[in-house]
Nucleic acid binder design. Structure first.
Lengths: 257, 257
DNA sequence: ACAAAAGTGTTGTCGATACACCCATGG
DNA sequence: CCATGGGTGTATCGACAACACTTTTGT
């Protein structure tokens, strides 16, 4: 198998290219069907899933590495991406997992093999537009797809913790920063934006107060057009005023839900 | 010199004990004479200062490493310590600086020497009680002392950035968490607590509103005793109600300055 | 016409600010 | 006795939550 050759090559030569002992794990959030989703990959030879992970090239900025990994998994660049925590427990790695994978491609590792050493991982979280993403697996995985935040498959190592802490961070950030731009299509309605907030915060918000508060932030453009076709009254479409949006990102919102 | 032997040993054997490519830099804040201070060490053989740095033993949790480094510099355990950012620019290390130090102890490093490789550093910040600290230098440094945040000596590499970002984080955290416990003596007056807040935020606060807000958090015990001796009316002494203080740490404050 | 969804308005509460007043102490 | 700092009280404003009303649309 050509793919397993690639994996073999990674095992054999990764040490040459990658910064030792450091990995990156990005929790990629998307929004679809009124549900918050995470992009996960199923790793080969085991029945375990993983958030979008990877390694840092020896001369690569960690933020660039995170961006690259995100692009490899989603096809997207220019995305909201932020480091949120470092996971530095010396026992977080799962030796058996690696040994098992290596056996499948015929790589025989000794005890000092680079991948079996301790890894510290840098947690990033990303917000992406679900419909623009083309989930792309690589030679390490045989599946890459979205999963509902409330219905997750079994995760490798401490990826449950990583995901949980990313979600917690997202919820906190939500209070002080605008976020819809990265998760919604260009044009969207106020109820759609509200659903996004409700989904992330996991609680109902008052329709009318939400609208007024959101408009109060002064980061939205109301378009002439309305969303037709649905039953009932047609809602306005909005887009983000990028200039004001980015100012709000820098300076923060009043906040408090 | 015995000390230089130690440094030599570090150069020669550090690779055996420490996790490669990872360092820890802790910005240690204290409060004294109504000024916010940082604990810095002056490194040997150069006219540059550094925040409290160190390395991670191969089987040590990064949080434990940060705690250990803090104890080595201050003599204190059980302290408020929190990771706040990872600095991962591949060009952040200063090769010349290391080479220069090594030359002074007669260590001759080749190009692949561990210390000259890329290091990613984990930024922590700590809040400590100034009067309890015994600033302690080690074999790498010839000075260790407090410096006013507004009057800093020249700092090594990106330690200026690290310090700035730590300060920014502290200011943000101040809005959502109680902090005085770690920076003030056991007993303190309301004006003293206010000075602390004013110093960190670098702005004046209204005396009366501050008092009411602070008392409203319900984390203080008013003591019978008052602070005598100063001119003018004797202010009450307070101490923190630790139980409520820690609950507030976990659950956050209302906040907003 | 009516149910359901969307848009707009009104009111009450609470916290934050601004400021006025009183108390204690040392010079 | 008065200047200075500390403690307590009150008015005002604005943000936010709760809730009423009107408008639009498909069936």
């Amino acid at each position: 198998m050509v793919e397993n050759k690639e994996l073999y090559k990674f095992f054999a030569q990764g040490e040459k290219f990658f910064q030792p002992g450091i990995s990156i794990d990005s929790v990629i959030f998307g929004f679809h069907n009124n549900q918050l989703k995470v992009l996960l990959t199923k790793l080969k030879y085991v029945n375990l899933w993983s958030v979008a992970g990877g390694f840092v090239y020896k001369d690569e900025h960690i933020d660039d590495a995170a961006t690259r990994i995100l692009r490899e998994r989603t096809g997207l660049s220019n995305i909201f991406l932020k480091q949120f925590y470092i996971f530095g427990d010396p026992r977080r790695s799962d030796r058996k997992f690696h040994v098992n994978r290596m056996r499948h491609v015929g790589w025989d590792a000794d005890r000092n093999y680079w991948l079996l050493k301790r890894f510290i991982t840098i947690g990033y979280y990303a917000l992406v537009n679900f419909t623009n993403v083309v989930p792309t697996r690589d030679y390490m995985s045989d599946l890459c797809d979205w999963y509902d935040i409330h219905d997750l498959p079994p995760l490798i190592m401490d990826h449950g913790d990583i995901l949980g802490r990313a979600l917690e961070t997202l919820r906190t950030q939500l209070k002080y920063q605008p976020i819809g731009y990265n998760l919604l299509p260009q044009k969207f309605t106020m109820p759609e934006l509200q659903k996004l907030y409700e989904t992330i915060l996991d609680k109902k918000l008052d329709r009318r107060n939400f609208q007024r508060k959101m408009l109060g932030y002064d980061i939205l453009n109301r378009l002439e057009q309305r969303r037709k076709g649905g039953a009932h009254k047609a809602p306005y479409l909005y887009s983000f005023n990028l200039k004001k949006y980015h100012r709000a990102l820098r300076e923060g919102l009043a906040g408090g839900w």
